[in-house]
Amino acid sequence: MAGFDKRVASYEEALAGLEDGMTVISGGFGLCGIPENLINEIKRKGTRDLTVVSNNCGVDGFGLGILLQDRQISKVVASYVGENALFEKQLLSGEIEVVLTPQGTLAEKMRAGGAGIPAFFTATGVGTPVADGKETREFKGRTYLMEESITGDFAIVKGWKADHFGNVIYRHTAQNFNPLAATAGKITVVEVEEIVEPGELDPAQIHTPGIYVDRIICGTFEKRIEQLTERP
């Protein structure tokens, strides 16, 4: 790697340094905009005892779901685990620890983590099980919960296009949690559909500035659709 050239040549290199017991923050919403190949590489590496922070945990046999099969994940921080029978089974049996977190709070935890803000207050979850054991405070007559931010040893991100500087743009709603995850990893790895020539991306249209990105790799994607719905 020279200067600002963050491209790596292989998925093995992309996830070099990922070890047992680490925390991995993943972009994606459902199966949309998930770093499929980086997840496959974690499976191939066989890294275990991972804490995974992601809105969902894939489905049976695809996305993060494949890491549940080999029990590589010991803890998940997520907002929604439906549509994944194995996950629900491991959760109910206590094999896996799950911290169910409201979606907006999860997004903000990543954003704050990447922005150097250790905690924030939100009205979300006040008076619900989410508030258990958390500090509350009143502002302007309303009660708010203190939520701590999240950072990860690794962030795995799916972008659309990037340049070798690590500037990334996302495609449509595949953006979702990806730019937030990208800010919150000690090592942030972004896989994209296309690496473009320097200068090709409009600087004013960059979603994730290269400063957040450590490694870039170009991959091919299955992009599985969870709920195909079409106009009658």
Binding site: G82, P102, G104, T124, V130
Partner: peptide, 10 residues
């Protein structure tokens, strides 16, 4: 039934 709250709490 444990599916998670998604965005409903927010």
């Amino acid at each position: 039934l444990v599916k998670g709250m998604g965005g409903a709490m927010d």
